[in-house]
Structure formats: structure tokens, C-alpha cells
């Protein structure tokens, strides 16, 4: 069985076809699964039952919602900048999909092992924000404009903690390829979270801000901005934003699990089992992080804009810089 898989993957084009089919399945499915999980978990955290009638325990609810969006009229406001307005959700969805390229699911099980994997993932995570700003601006709506500007401010503040907190694992591994970082953790013996706990926390906070998840959802802020940057969107364009939000969250948590939690590797699993157990291990770790993100949502209230900026500039960036200095010093001395 393994031999057959290796043979097929050895042919570049056949391998590429399989990879594309896989990703076309993974992205919408992960968005649906984490979407319904979020609804259900949120409901139970608030002592409600949540969706119940569509399918057993409401598990099919989001699929019904998704199909419904196809039947909705596609409205482009007269005042809007039509080309940008139409392109923006596509940009957001594509950047959410492309992040999956560099995530290793097992030894050799990676869509494309880029040498600059870490840079690539970080660059794509901020590309989504460019799409959001484009959506906010092109809508020609005051709520959308403010939402887009808030997203820009958030990107400026949290891009740096995100990038700087990743330097810790990169120093320890000595490579920027994500497969290389996982292999370095195997050699290291424990996942990097054990020695890099503070940058992990900084990374998670910055990642939530980058994804505009509560408590950093000021660009959407239903109670002030209606729906923020996607106020004017309807039908399948709205669906794109929805899919992208959950796919990007999953992608980001996979990235975090790979960098800090050891990725597909778990102590005690024999080398030969890794290609089969690896994806399950990685999925479990990423799922756990997604749960934490949902948990955060119902734990902290939304931050104010000035609190957002001061949290990043006064706390997260100095902490991340300090961590780089300490990690590098320890690495050289030890």
C-alpha cells in the first residue's frame, strides 16, 4: 500500500492532481466542521442546545445554510467599486486555501515543502487582510469603510508579534521549512511549546487578532458596525467570506500546531506508523487549538481600539523581542 502511494506521488503531475483533489475537499469540509462545532460549543457554553432540527443534533444545519446562499441574489451596490468589490472575497478565500500548501501531515506528506515555509504562511495570513481592506473600501459604505480601516490597524499592530514570536522556533530548528521544524522537534525530544511557551501565547493572541476572531473582532463588531466590511455582501460572496474565515482559522491553528506542538509527531509513536498516525495527531492538536479559540470567544469581551494597539506595542512586541534575545543567547551558550 505504502509502495503504491510512493509510486503515484513520484510522478509529479499525478501527485499534484491528488493533492488538488484533497485540498478541494479539505478546505470546505474543515470550514463546515469547525463552523458547526463553533455553533454547538458556543451554544453549550451559554447553556443552550443550539441548532437541533436539521439532521441529528443539527449537524447538517450549515450545509443547508451554505446551499441557501447559492439561491440568494448577488447584489452589487450601485455606488460600489464593482471590480474590487467582486474580487475581494476571492482574494480572502484564496489566501486561506494557499496556506495549506506548506503544512506537513506526516514525514514526506506535504503538499509542497517550501524552503521559506514560515515566511510563506505569514505572508499569506496578511494577504487575507488586504482582501478585507479591499472589501471595506470598495463597498462605499460607511460601516464597511470603518471596518476595513480597523482591519488595517489590526494588521499593523499584530503582524509584528506574529512574525517575531515565530523567530523562536526558527532559531531552535535552524530552518524555515515547516517539515524541517517538525523534524528538529523530533530530534529535540519535546515539542517546542515546552521551551517556547511565552512566544506560543504571543503567537496565539496575534493569530486571533490576525483572524479577526473575538476578542479582536472590531472589524466586524456587530453591535457598532452592522457587519463591518461585509455589510454589503450577499449570496455566494458572503459564503466566500464565511468559508475563508473558518478555513483560515484551521490553517492558522495547523501552522501553530506545527511550529509549537510538534506537528504530526507525538512521543511514543514508532517511526513506521508515522505516515498513518501523523495526520490524526496533527488534526487532534489543531482541533484542540480551534477549541481554545472558540473558548476565548466566550471568555473575553471585545477590546477597544486603543487597548488593541497598546496591547500589541507595549506588551507583545517587547516580549517577543526579549524572547528572541534570550532564545538566541541560550542556543549559542548551551
Amino acid at each position: 500500500m505504502t509502495g503504491f502511494i510512493t509510486d503515484v506521488m513520484a510522478n509529479f503531475w499525478a501527485g499534484l492532481g491528488i493533492k488538488l483533489a484533497l485540498i478541494a475537499f479539505i478546505v470546505p469540509t474543515s470550514a463546515l466542521v469547525f463552523g458547526i462545532l463553533e455553533i454547538k460549543i458556543s451554544a453549550h457554553m451559554q447553556d443552550r442546545i443550539g441548532p437541533y432540527f436539521v439532521g441529528a443534533w443539527g449537524w447538517i444545519q450549515l450545509m443547508a445554510d451554505g446551499l441557501k446562499f447559492f439561491q440568494k441574489e448577488d447584489i452589487v451596490p450601485t455606488d460600489a467599486d464593482a471590480p474590487v468589490f467582486k474580487l475581494a472575497p476571492v482574494l480572502v478565500l484564496m489566501s486561506a486555501m494557499a496556506i495549506f500548501v506548506v503544512i506537513p501531515w506526516g514525514p514526506g506528506l506535504v503538499f509542497g515543502d517550501l524552503e521559506l515555509g514560515v515566511f510563506y504562511a505569514l505572508a499569506l495570513s496578511s494577504l487575507a487582510t488586504v482582501g478585507i481592506i479591499a472589501a471595506g473600501w470598495s463597498s462605499a459604505n460607511k460601516y464597511s469603510l470603518i471596518g476595513g480601516l480597523r482591519a488595517a490597524g489590526q494588521l499593523i499592530a499584530y503582524e509584528l508579534p506574529l512574525v517575531l514570536s515565530v523567530v523562536g522556533p526558527v532559531i531552535l530548528a535552524g530552518t524555515m521549512s515547516l517539515s524541517g521544524i517538525v523534524e528538529a522537534q523530533v530530534v529535540f525530544g519535546v515539542p517546542y511549546i515546552v521551551v517556547q511557551f511565552i512566544p506560543f501565547v504571543v503567537f496565539m493572541i496575534a493569530a486571533l487578532a490576525e483572524l479577526s476572531r473575538l476578542p479582536f473582532d472590531m472589524p466586524i463588531a456587530e453591535s457598532e458596525l452592522v457587519m463591518g466590511y461585509f455589510t454589503e455582501y450577499t449570496g455566494f460572496r458572503f459564503l466566500f467570506f464565511f468559508l475563508a474565515e473558518y478555513a483560515a482559522m484551521f490553517g492558522m491553528m495547523l501552522f501553530a500546531a506545527t511550529l509549537f506542538l510538534g506537528g504530526y509527531w507525538a512521543p511514543g509513536i514508532p517511526e513506521s506508523m508515522m505516515p498513518f498516525v501523523g495526520p490524526v495527531v496533527l488534526l487532534t492538536k489543531a482541533g484542540l487549538l480551534v477549541f481554545v479559540a472558540i473558548w476565548f470567544r466566550w471568555t473575553w469581551p471585545r477590546l477597544r481600539e486603543d487597548q488593541l494597539q497598546s496591547l500589541a506595542w507595549r506588551w507583545l512586541i517587547p516580549i517577543a523581542l526579549l524572547n528572541i534575545a534570550v532564545t538566541a543567547t541560550l542556543k549559542v551558550i548551551l
Binding site: 509529479f12 499534484l16 493533492k19 488538488l20 485540498i23 478541494a24 447559492f70 439561491q71 440568494k72 441574489e73 448577488d74 476571492v90 478565500l93 484564496m94 486555501m97 494557499a98 495549506f100 500548501v101 503538499f111 509542497g112 517550501l114 510563506y120 449570496g235 455566494f236 459564503l239 466566500f240
Partner: peptide, 26 residues
């Protein structure tokens, strides 16, 4: 990097499919 390009092309293709589907249904 060709894989990256293919992923982006796939994204464009999915968008095209959805566009056609929405044209037909909406």
C-alpha cells in the same frame, strides 16, 4: 512553487464553478 501556483489556480477554478452555479440558481 508549481504546487503553490496550482493551488491558486484551483482557488480560481472553485470560484468559477461557484459563479456558474450561482448564476443558474440565484
Amino acid at each position: 512553487y508549481l504546487t503553490v501556483g496550482a493551488f491558486i489556480a484551483l482557488g480560481a477554478l472553485l470560484v468559477g464553478v461557484v459563479l456558474v452555479l450561482a448564476r443558474a440558481l440565484a
